[in-house]
Simulated scan of single mutants.
Amino acid sequence: MNMAFANITVISHTYFYLLGIPGLEDQHIWISIPFFAFYIIALLGNSLLIFIVVTDHSLHEPMYIFLCMLAVADIGLSTTAIPKALAIFWFNSGGITLDGCITQLFFIHGIFIVESGILLAMAFDRYIAICYPLRYTTILNSSVIIKLGITSYMRGAVTIFPITFLVKRLTFCKNNLLPHTYCENIGLAKYACESIRVNIWYGIFVILITVVLDIFLIVASYSVILRAIFRMPSQDARQKALQTCGSHICVILLFYIPGIFTFLVQRFGKQIPPHIHILIANVCMLAPPFMNPIIYGIKTKQIKNSIYNLFFQRQK
């Protein structure tokens, strides 16, 4: 009997099927409408933002350069996940190879960490601008900005790269049907035959040293910033400072709240229906790229003026 079991060869799945949103299959076409609309607006909005910052020399300041970096990351984040989701909704085309799945989860998790790093850099920018205004251009010179941007992108790649090996080593013999619109680390690893304890603990470790640390530093920065703002003698100065920080705070909340909720639901929310978790997970892919250009376009006077000049001044 033991010899018989010893001769059994476990065949690992190398091809998977993303099912979309289980329980809402009959609504896929209707769900795809806002997905497609928000994705197109996100692409156009972020592309316009990048174009304006690059071509308008008056916007070649640290705040807008970081915003341009964020727009690039937003395009990457939404493009990594949403086209595949639309293919599932429209054509029932959920097939994906293991290598393709690992590549997708690498970019999704990596870009999420990149965005978190850029938001931290933007908080640092606001801290210097408000607390050390006379040294602003000296501290945040071109060299520092480039280093902060490269560090944000490299950190995302370096911390997520080991996950690709941790997932690649697994043997997937349980199931090859993934109830989701895109591949994610634990969502894929839980279908492995062997223990995924290393995957789980490394995933938590990465979250702690990146996103959780970033949140802590952002909160610390804004506690100092707000204290400095309310100590300003002029009400106009306080109002102007709050307006410059308001856009960034909205973007921070929009980025972190859905992401934290998804992380907690995935690990502890066993009673929450799967389709709710998947919808919230897709909000993380769509909401920040969709809303960030709108928030900065509405709340930032310089960007509004640049957009006006681009579309209306040239027509005169």
Rank of each mutant, 00 (worst) to 15 (best):
K84D: 06
L98K: 15
I88F: 00
G100F: 02
I65Q: 01
T79F: 05
V72R: 07
L67R: 03
P83V: 13
E61P: 03
A71M: 01
I108P: 05
A73Y: 07
I82P: 02
W90I: 05
C68S: 14
I108S: 12
E61L: 14
V72D: 00
P83N: 12
L77Q: 15
L70V: 05
S78Q: 04
P62S: 05
L105K: 10
P83E: 14
W90G: 06
M63I: 12
G100C: 08
A81H: 11
T97K: 06
A85K: 09
M69T: 09
I102C: 08
L77I: 04
I75M: 13
Y64N: 10
F91G: 00
A85V: 10
G95H: 03
A71L: 02
T103V: 07
I75K: 09
E61Y: 03
G100W: 04
C68T: 15
I96P: 01
I108H: 14
A81R: 04
F89Q: 10
A71N: 01
G100K: 03
I82F: 04
S78V: 13
L86Y: 02
S93M: 13
F107Y: 15
F107P: 00
I82C: 09
A87N: 10
A87Y: 06
H109Y: 10
T80P: 10
T80A: 15
N92V: 06
C101E: 08
F91D: 05
N92P: 03
G76R: 01
Y64M: 08
G94L: 13
N92L: 09
A73T: 02
M69G: 08
E61V: 08
I108V: 15
L70E: 13
G76E: 05
A85Q: 06
L86H: 09
Q104T: 06
T103C: 10
I88E: 04
L77Y: 02
Q104C: 05
F107D: 07
A85L: 11
A71D: 00
E61N: 05
M69C: 12
S78Y: 02
I108Y: 15
M63F: 15
C68F: 03
D74S: 07
G100T: 11
S78H: 07
L105T: 14
D74A: 10
A87I: 04
A73W: 06
D99W: 02
L70W: 01
E61W: 07
A85E: 08
M69Q: 08
D74R: 03
M63A: 06
L86N: 11
I88T: 11
T79M: 12
F91H: 14
E61I: 11
L105V: 07
A71G: 03
C68V: 08
G95L: 00
A71V: 00
F107N: 06
G76W: 00
A87T: 09
T79E: 04
M69W: 15
L67G: 05
G76H: 01
T80S: 14
Q104A: 09
G100N: 07
E61S: 04
M69H: 10
N92S: 13
